[in-house]
Design a protein around this nucleic acid. Structure first.
Lengths: 237, 237
DNA sequence: ACCTGAACACCGTTCAAGT
DNA sequence: ACCTGAACACCGTTCAAGT
């Protein structure tokens, strides 16, 4: 893998393309993100991306290791945007909540890209930076190392997992253009109350909830538990 | 959508295929799951599935609404298997934990299928049954409806989201055949301690954790918080 | 050094024709 | 009623050839 991809810094001469474009990783990623937003995740292909860039599709292979490498680069870009928007306040619980919502938000702002990208955890620079930040918040707050590492792991995977799930739902809703609110309403309202008593009893509450992400609540519950664990550590040191 | 798909019960005559197979939804889903396991998620295509079944690929279109419909059916199958393996004990926390681990496990036992399927939440029968079960556990435990609905939502989405994330990682590891344990070890061990002090300080703990799913811990943390909320409701009724 | 063009080996899906 | 075969409009990727 990564066979003949030339790293961005090592590029010597760049000739404009037949149609006059001067290519770069930046330009390719930005164009890919735009295509994903405009045409959905099925709308991105090497051939179409080439056409959008005014370049032969095969040229992409010296910038990225195939479509897979491009996907990884897009994921890095999204994580990076979340990190850039983050500033710590010193309150660990507030900061973790903020960072989680930023990561989730960065993916959801490009749902079609997130679908492609999520679950491709990579170990590339911006991701490592996010890891360091989260670990730092927890260790500084006073969590013992073993506890900090566990909570870090649960926190970061929860953020990425919900980002992927919610992006998938959003991407689907965008392409199928169905009024989703009504869809949930009718799904739950239509069920026989004798067979599904608990759904029937809460149908209104369900319909109101299911169109929003469960991530904020799940995140708060994780932080609840973390806070209780920190108290336990402090009282029995 | 679902244009000319004949529902399984409504099928009249079935002619064996040129090669002698008698098709059914069951047979098609089982064959697809086997192909996914054996050849990875890129190894499933209408043409290859047709060949494996001994039928023309175009025949599949009267059993499922394209590859997308087949994907949904595979998702239903995985959820169904988790539910079939579940029996309630009456201890809500134990039961939710059990059910969460079963759902996660069902997806992870077919990681290649889970990758395709996850994030395609559908509202089909087996899924609704899972919803009813979870809501029932929470309401019977004494959670007020609004609380029960919120926790149900966080629980079910967290289970599916982690299932998808972990399945993705597993599927990737299976196809790339890299020794993953060593990969994490080297990633973290190689980082400069002055730039990444928190990672450096916990590198050993990280390497030990990152190859396992964070789902069991995240699940326990969610249940911790739920239990605390239930206590709060009980003491101030 | 970098981009191009042709070629290879595939896709999903439709629909008229066969049995 | 059900399955088939040909056709359409696409894919990702490689590599020798061009500039």
């Amino acid at each position: 893998m990564a066979k003949k991809v030339v790293p961005e810094e090592a590029r010597r001469r760049r000739r404009p393309t037949r149609q006059g474009t001067v290519l770069s990783e930046r330009l390719i990623i930005d164009t890919a993100l735009r295509m994903l937003r405009e045409h959905g995740s099925a709308g991105l292909s090497a051939r179409r991306l080439g056409a959008a860039l005014g370049a032969d599709p095969s040229t992409l292979y010296r910038y990225f290791d195939g479509m897979d490498g491009l996907t990884l680069a897009i994921g890095e870009e999204l994580i990076g945007r979340a990190l850039d928007a983050f500033t710590a306040t010193g309150d660990w619980r507030h900061d973790l909540r903020e960072l989680g919502l930023l990561i989730h938000g960065a993916y959801l702002s490009h749902p079609q890209a997130a679908v492609l990208t999520a679950g491709r955890v990579t170990g590339r620079p911006r991701e490592i930076a996010a890891d360091e930040t989260v670990l730092g918040l927890l260790r500084t707050a006073g969590f013992p190392d073993a506890e900090a590492v566990g909570i870090y792991h649960a926190f970061i995977d929860q953020s990425l997992a919900f980002a992927a799930l919610d992006a998938g739902a959003l991407a689907l809703a965008e392409t199928s253009r169905t009024s989703d609110e009504r869809q949930w309403e009718s799904t739950y309202a239509r069920l026989p109350a004798d067979e599904y008593p608990h759904i029937a009893a809460t149908a209104r509450l369900l319909a109101a909830r299911m169109n929003h992400s469960a991530y904020p609540l799940a995140l708060d519950m994780l932080l609840d538990s973390a806070e209780a664990r920190l108290r336990a550590v402090r009282t029995t040191p």
